[in-house]
Each structure stands twice: as structure tokens, then as C-alpha cells.
Amino acid sequence: MRRKKDRPRKTASEKPSLTRRDFLKGAGVTVSGGLLGKSIVADAAQPESKNEIVGPGAVPVTLRVNGKVHKLNIEPRVTLLDALRDRLDITGSKKVCDRATCGACTMLMDRKPVYGCTVLAIEAEGHEITTIEGLAADDKLTPVMAAFVNHDAQQCGFCTPGFVMACTAFLERNPNPSLEDIEKGLGGNLCRCGTYWGVRHAVLQAAREMKGGSHGNV
């Protein structure tokens, strides 16, 4: 279940220790299901069937992520990003602003780019979620990923998974983009290192390659 390759390799002298993430996972509080089915809204009319309302306690949610089905028990307030990162250990999508602004959490929902921090996990039920982990088949780089490497389109790398997802979705809709289209289309992602020049040219290169053009630098 846990993918070893995502973790830093331990040196011989290093003691096996609890990672920060393991600690956070272990410390998760189990919420009592006692409130389930009982409305906490005082003066709202009651629905015909109580089954319509779930929460505020944990409820079963099934997510389909990168082609794999995951069954979770989470509160309705848990975002898709938090569900993936904290419960499923799918940590490629990053949590930065957590306010639908920076784009570091960009993932695809039914192939459309969304901010995972601003979708509730429960809303994502029944949709196909794709994260950076699910993009490349057989560990081979996609044209967008390869172009990011070629153009040095990252420095610290924290925005990169979100950018790669946004670029991938953008190219699907705009196979022949101009630099101006790219600038507009990628307006939903921020890079604090300022690698925008590299990103734009990476997208141009990926566009050429995806149309069957030759490999190589601009």
C-alpha cells in the first residue's frame, strides 16, 4: 500500500523513526457516529427522508483515484486534498494556500483541472480523480514531465505537480497554444521561484511532441 519510492532513502546510521506524516496519521481523532442521522439545524424544514443528510460525523465515502477504488470513513468537511494526502498517503498534490488560489493541489476530476483543496472529498464520489501519481504509465515520463525537465521548469519543485497537472489539462483542450494562450491558460498556478519562463516553454515543447514532432530543446 505504502509506496516506498516516495520516501527519502534511509542511511545505515539512521534509526527507523516515525515520520511526521505517520505521526499525523496516527494522531487522527476518530469522530463518534452518534450525531449521524440526527439533524443539528434547528429551524430548517426536515427532509422527506433522513437518509439524504449525512454527517457531521464520519461517513463512508468511496473515491476512485488513479484508477483504484478507495473506501474511506471521513467527515463531510474533509477536502479531497486532505483525504488523499492524510488518509490515502497519495501526497503528490501539495497543500500550499489551501484557498483555491495557488494551484499546488491541482488534480483532474473527470479530466478537468480542479483545486483539490476546494473540493469536498464527499463531492468527489462518483468522479474519476487523477493526481500526478496517476499520470505516467509504467513510470515513463509524459511529454509534459519530460519538457519540464528539459526546460528547467522548476526550482524548489513544490508547485511542480500542480503545474504539470494544469499543463496536461490545458494541452488537452489547447493542442496548438501560443505563448499568450499558455500565459492565460496557466493563470491558476503560482510559482514563488518564478520559473514561469521555463514552464511556458515546456508547454510549447510538450505541445509539439504530443503532435508527433521531434524531441529536443527549443
Binding site: 429551524d43 457531521p56 464527499i122
Partner: peptide
């Protein structure tokens, strides 16, 4: 924490709303 509902019709959604602002919120794009 909040209760959550995802009705299939406008009529059933209306039955889930309260009479005071802030008590219920409608979620669209989010």
C-alpha cells in the same frame, strides 16, 4: 463540522434550507 446533503431536485434542495442566513449554505462550485 457540518451536515451534508446532495439532493437531486431543486424541490428537495429547498426542503433542506433554513430560514436564517448562516445556518445552511448552498454549495455549487465551492
Amino acid at each position: 463540522a457540518f451536515e451534508y446533503a446532495s439532493p437531486h431536485t431543486t424541490e428537495s434542495a429547498l426542503k433542506l434550507l433554513g430560514g436564517r442566513w448562516g445556518e445552511t449554505e448552498i454549495l455549487a462550485g465551492g
